[in-house]
Design a binder for these strands. Structure first.
Lengths: 316, 316
DNA sequence: GTGAAAGCGCTAACAA
DNA sequence: TTGTTAGCGCTTTCAC
């Protein structure tokens, strides 16, 4: 009968606000929006809402955010790509449940959802093997990052599992960036024996790899095949379109929210890291048969917008 | 003395929660995160927090979101890229202030912050003129979008102001996408007289333009110069790096929050659209003297992260 | 000036 | 089962 409860009053009484706090390093980091979207979509199913604060990688801001959120009586918290924090004393004292998603640095931590970079790497490597490649090089990210190290492990193990020795110079550490990928590739092309395929640890560097190969007068994928990682939105507009393993940001966010909701209901949740594996998006940069290509989903929203406005779906 | 107020109780008493609702079409739309970040950064200065809900371009979801937010007693609302809504009856009845940011379609509306695409276009065109170009073509976005139409107006007026006639075939409507830009450019290159510069209405199409020009055996910027619009993050990793006018998403969000805070304080705010002009990022695609290039700021957070982790700043 | 008390809307506990 | 009431923590009002 038109009755609309006042959530403030209810929250005051029940000590439950149906709100959680989300502390993100920075909303503008590339994976933060999809992680948060995943969180939001799960929260919606349990009638929760999220209050988002940016900590900008600043420990003081992060502490302040925790304090602010506690003052708002949130029921729990999720730390998104939060850099460094072991939960503050204040958070522990409050006894509210919390989760971490996609912590990038530091030792592994409890109640944390992370990408399964090792398994994702296997996906990429197996694809290359299935296409007949055996001389596969790897351009890695900076070793300070979890993801970079795990992708290296995956590469090394994968090669060994196929009984292939990794030649000197086939594994290079770079910096995640276009320029780094470009430079590393130039080095690689001067290697003997020269690899026929390169597993590049992220899409940015892979872009540089594509351009370096072209600059050397070679073609992708005919002369050198490329697989990379992340499935950033530009990877399907680059030519050739990149074959890449997705970093399952959305799914990770969803999972973290799900775990949190379990804790919210008082259930005991396994403390160890939850690993989520991405998917291989088969496109053009490996030369796989076109019939194998992943069918691309339109970006969320663009089809609805299309129906609404008559304006065609736009890739984001 | 360690006293921490309970915001719920305070809110119940004062009818002020220091919280606003943010209804976004979709957190994953490219300009939504920077707009929200702008809102958040302003809100922080007045001790407010934002509750974000995605409406996914669905009028029903949007109505539901308004209702949810009202139930949470937010003090006001901001609609981010919300497609269509004239405020619902319920919102009006609640008497809470609200603002729109970056409404993409439909008739102009009150209390709305939008990009000044006309002025931004002048920036782009003047840059081209200053480089000596007179034969300038325009690849436009779909005419259903405000931004596309205003960018066309800016182009046409700018040409006329310089006393230049727009040749037949110099103005093409496309679809915002890489493929559209590519195809339009091929058409343009077959035009006589062939333009020496192209003003492309967004970065995505401009990417296609670059590739089409290359495919025709011509060079950017030597044979054809390109300016575009939006300043998407990939525009500075594309080679040549795109000279482009930014869509000032962050600033728009900030402004909207500022306007809302004025309304929150009971001040009367001008009802007409607030227009925010972007900035011209001079890079490589127009062939401007290197000394004129805009100095690039590192992405928010990456420098802090650098200090924290020893890992170099990464472009997002 | 200081201090006590009422009441915001709800739910949980208790009484009938 | 149904109905009544106390009280969550704060601010505002009103009495002193």
């Amino acid at each position: 009968m038109e009755y609309k409860p006042n959530w403030l009053a209810r929250g005051m009484r029940t000590e439950r606000t149906n709100t959680i706090g989300i502390i993100a390093d920075d909303l503008l980091s590339p994976f933060t929006p999809p992680i948060i979207r995943g969180i939001q979509d799960f929260l919606r199913t349990i009638d929760y809402l999220g209050l988002i604060i940016n900590s900008d990688w600043d420990p003081d801001l992060e502490r302040e955010a925790i304090s602010t959120l506690l003052g708002r009586s949130v029921d729990g918290m999720i730390f998104v790509e939060s850099g460094h924090l072991a939960p503050t004393e204040e958070l522990e004292k409050a006894g509210k449940p919390y989760m971490f998603v996609h912590r990038l640095f530091g030792a592994p931590i409890q109640y944390s959802v992370v990408p399964d970079d090792y398994a994702g790497t296997q996906l990429a490597m197996e694809h290359l093997f299935s296409l007949g490649h055996r001389c596969i090089a790897h351009i890695a990210g900076p070793s300070g990052w979890h993801s970079a190290r795990r992708r290296v492990d995956g590469y090394v193990d994968s090669m060994h599992q196929h009984g292939i020795a990794i030649e000197a110079g086939w594994m290079l550490e770079s910096d995640w960036r276009y320029e780094g990928g470009f430079a590393a590739t130039q080095q690689l092309l001067a290697t003997d024996p020269c690899p026929t395929a390169i597993y590049v640890a992220n899409d940015h560097m892979a872009w540089g790899t594509v351009e370096a190969i072209r600059a050397a007068g070679l073609r992708v994928p005919d002369d050198v095949a490329i697989v990379s990682y992340d499935n950033r939105s530009f990877s399907r507009v680059l030519r050739p379109k990149l074959t890449t393993v997705s970093l399952p940001a959305y799914e990770m966010g969803k999972k973290a929210a799900e775990q949190l909701s379990l804790k919210l209901q008082g259930e005991t949740v396994a403390t160890d890291e939850v690993k989520i594996c991405g998917t291989l998006y088969i496109r053009e940069s490996c030369g796989a048969d076109p019939s194998l290509r992943t069918v691309e989903q339109p970006d969320v929203g663009t089809t609805v917008r299309h129906q609404l406005t008559g304006v065609p779906p736009v890739s984001n």
